[in-house]
């Protein structure tokens, strides 16, 4: 079965259960999943009930698609995402992105928890992703290309839609929210990085670092979606002063930042103009 056929099968199943075509796709990172609770007239579908969808395993990630209305737009949210470090291939990790596109989504908003390498960042900061560096050691597009899904060699010059970055910044300003902007470095994990590795990643131009998002963004670009990426800076990842870190601490900061983050996201979803 071709990738396209798998995508269509998943899409058909979802479509049979929902009333309206979603315009915006939301991938909700660690600890940020409960934005999905605010979706109204929601249809909730477990990943295991969707043909060809992988199943999520990380603590803090539920494993459901939530489709419904948020701030006047129809959205499809992933409550729980897949990561390369769980042992999925990057092709599996990005499968939902293509399904979202097939369902009618035009904009993908990907959020994540990330370590802050930029010395100006603090835990609890929200960072607009301007660009990324793929240090995962892989690429979700490796393999034969199906032309119906996208080009063999997608351009990545403006993967994170510049107009959306500007728009999101304006929305933050209107809310009196100070936000950061920077380059996200994607690594495989699952180990957090060593101090020496963090210094290297910062030297290479990274402002924040995490174990997700890069594959999904490459796929979204391939598929022709607009993209907005936001990192919640959950810890300080500065090699020279590194302290031990646990997943619990990451989730704790993400939870603390949630109210601001949700307000901002809702303003963005409400205000964004889509065809």
């Amino acid at each position: 079965m071709s990738k396209l056929q798998q995508i269509r099968e998943a899409k058909a199943k979802i479509e049979s259960l929902i009333a309206h075509r979603p315009q915006i796709g939301l991938i909700l990172g660690s600890g940020l999943g409960d934005l999905a609770d605010e979706i109204e007239e929601a249809t909730v579908i477990s990943y295991q009930d969707i043909p060809h969808f992988p199943v999520s395993t990380v603590e803090g990630h539920a494993g459901q698609l939530v489709i419904g209305k948020l701030e006047g737009k129809t959205v499809v949210a992933m409550r729980g995402r897949f990561h390369f470090y769980e042992g999925y291939t990057q092709q599996e990790v990005v499968f939902p992105v293509y399904v979202m596109k097939e369902l009618g989504v035009q904009l993908l908003i990907a959020t994540n928890a990330a370590g802050g390498m930029n010395k100006n960042f603090k835990p609890g900061d929200l960072m607009l992703i301007e660009d990324h560096i793929n240090m995962t050691g892989s690429n979700p597009l490796i393999g034969p290309n199906e032309e119906e899904l996208g080009l063999r060699f997608p351009d990545m010059s403006t993967a994170y839609t510049p107009e959306l970055i500007a728009f999101s910044k304006r929305m933050a300003e209107e809310l009196g929210l100070a936000v950061q902007q920077g380059v996200y470095v994607g690594v495989s994990g699952p180990t957090y990085l060593t101090p020496a590795e963090l210094i290297m990643m910062r030297e290479l131009g990274g402002d924040a670092i995490g174990m997700s998002t890069v594959p999904e963004v490459i796929a979204a670009r391939h598929a022709g979606l607009k993209i907005l990426g936001i990192s919640c800076i959950t810890d300080i990842a500065i090699g020279e002063e590194l302290e031990p870190l646990t997943h619990e601490q990451v989730v704790e900061v993400a939870n603390r930042t949630k109210p601001q983050f949700k307000k901002w996201m809702k303003a963005i979803v409400r205000g964004v103009t889509l065809a």
Binding site: H132, N139, P154, M156
Partner: peptide
Amino acid sequence: LGPSYETPAEIRM
């Protein structure tokens, strides 16, 4: 690796 072309941040790197 490709096949996506590099981002500007990757080129600077």
